[in-house]
């Protein structure tokens, strides 16, 4: 299960030497849209987004990016480079001025507000820097929330939420409210919530930004486990060692893709993949 995407990823990294500027099409393979034959989880095509804050600001100025199913992409760039706007487009929170956004086969710009809400609820999972759990709901209820909006049955919802929390190692914290959880635990609840409706793509905005290094690494370990289980991940970060956990890093600058950097899967995160033994240990870690 884990090996086949890894194989294709290693092929990808072979054709794309690390650090080589790759915005140009080389040998007929466009690294930005190339999927190595895997299905497309989500893609943006030549999207532009301009904000008018006194004068026009080109947040995105012609960006194309394809996320193959099961891929793990990090987006880096200085502030104002368009990272968040790109994430919002993939998250169906925003629509582009030009270009198309496609999530799991649906073209977002053609959808109504309510349909975009449905796509957000069913195809996309969000993980935020501030965890953003609803403070009055318990862990299980927070995880069940997307299923509530999606109209899933109560007991069914509860069972699935419990299963997801166990999967992220919080089986013993089901009925705790966020204030009773550590930062790392809260982020795990947020990740479990993001997975609630079996999304096509998991979007993470600085998921380790509010965590200490050790907890951050554990969360990244969880991301990699999820990625190993075929979850497609798009993560915005400004920390190199966090971005190193991905298959590839997209560098944005002034609303354009400056560089796409493929990473050697065997050296992701600066160290080999963790043994299954010390994967999710349930202790979460403090913040």
């Amino acid at each position: 299960m884990i090996t086949s995407p890894l194989e294709s990823l290693s092929q990808l990294s072979r054709t794309l030497p690390t650090g080589t500027p790759t915005t140009d099409v080389e040998d007929g393979v466009d690294p930005v849209t190339e999927t190595s034959g895997r299905p497309v989880a989500a893609a943006v095509d030549d999207v532009r987004k301009t904000y008018y804050l006194g004068e026009p600001v080109h947040a995105l100025d012609g960006v194309s990016l394809t996320l193959p199913a099961g891929s793990f992409t990090a987006v880096m760039g200085p502030s104002g480079s368009g990272k968040s706007t790109l994430l919002n487009l993939f998250g169906c929170l925003d629509t582009p001025d030009e270009g198309t956004v496609e999530i799991g086969g649906e073209v977002a710009s053609e959808l109504s507000e309510a349909e975009r809400a449905r796509v957000r609820g069913t195809r996309i999972g969000f993980v935020f820097q501030g965890f953003d759990l609803l403070p009055r709901l318990t862990a299980v209820e927070n995880v069940a929330l997307p299923m509530v909006f999606h109209g899933r049955q109560g007991s069914d919802r509860h069972d699935r939420a419990r299963g997801l929390l166990e999967r992220v190692g919080l089986g013993d914290r089901l009925d705790h409210v966020p204030t009773e959880l550590s930062g790392g635990q809260r982020q795990r609840v947020a990740i479990a919530r993001a997975l609630a409706n079996d999304p096509a793509i998991l979007l993470a905005d600085e998921p380790t930004g509010n965590l200490d290094t050790e907890t951050g690494e554990r969360i990244m370990g969880l991301f990699r486990d999820l990625n190993g289980e075929e979850t497609t991940i798009l993560m915005v970060t400004h920390e190199r060692h966090i971005a190193d956990h991905a298959d590839r890093i997209v560098h944005l600058l002034d609303g354009r893709i400056e560089e796409v950097e493929g990473l050697d899967p065997n050296e992701r995160g600066g160290r080999p993949r963790p043994d299954p033994e010390d994967r999710v240990d349930g202790s979460g870690g403090g913040s």
Binding site: A117, F128, L134, P146, F149, H150
Partner: peptide
């Protein structure tokens, strides 16, 4: 406001 944002991000419609 932020909670509303989260709810919308996890799929809440306006009517929800």
């Amino acid at each position: 406001t932020r909670e509303i944002g989260i709810m919308k991000a996890v799929g809440a419609r306006r009517r929800d």
